[in-house]
């Protein structure tokens, strides 16, 4: 779609939207958000970028093929369950590492890894479809 306004706006917005999507994903455990929502938002942002700048530009922006995101996402999702096995808990039991650093409380956890996996799969799935359609 050849629209200067859309293109300029999108180029500005894309970074904000992607950042916001990561923010939504990270905060998901405590507030509305999470991997599904973050992933959908990120995918929408890239899809918008693809509409504005053509899908080749979007592919360049993403750097990796979207199928790779699916693979990584699934690997993270499956892998997140193994932390529990190390601790002797059933597969996929949540494992938490909470510590204070630089005056902030950090919560690292296996569900977070899992949610990142969901995020990547959702982004990869949507973009695989959009790119495959755009390419034709």
């Amino acid at each position: 779609m050849n629209s200067v306004i859309l293109r300029s706006a999108t180029n500005l917005l894309i970074a904000v939207l992607l950042l916001f999507s990561v923010f939504l994903m990270l905060r998901g455990h405590d507030l509305p958000g999470g991997g599904f929502i973050g992933g959908l938002l990120a995918a929408s942002a890239v899809a918008l970028y693809a509409i504005a700048n053509g899908h080749r530009a979007a592919v360049r922006l993403l750097r990796v093929p979207p199928q790779a995101l699916i693979a990584w996402g699934l690997a993270l999702g499956v892998g997140a369950g193994f932390f529990a096995l190390l601790q002797g808990d059933p597969y996929l039991t949540g494992q938490w590492l909470i510590f204070a650093f630089a005056g902030v409380e950090w919560k690292l956890s296996s569900p977070l890894v899992f949610d990142v996996g969901v995020y990547l799969v959702v982004v990869g799935v949507v973009l695989t479809m959009v790119f495959a359609l755009e390419e034709r």
Binding site: F36, V122, V126, M129, L133
Partner: peptide, 13 residues
């Protein structure tokens, strides 16, 4: 909802 989206996209293609 998300699965429904996947289904819809697949059906459209």
């Amino acid at each position: 909802i998300v699965i429904g989206f996947g289904l819809t996209a697949f059906a459209l293609v």
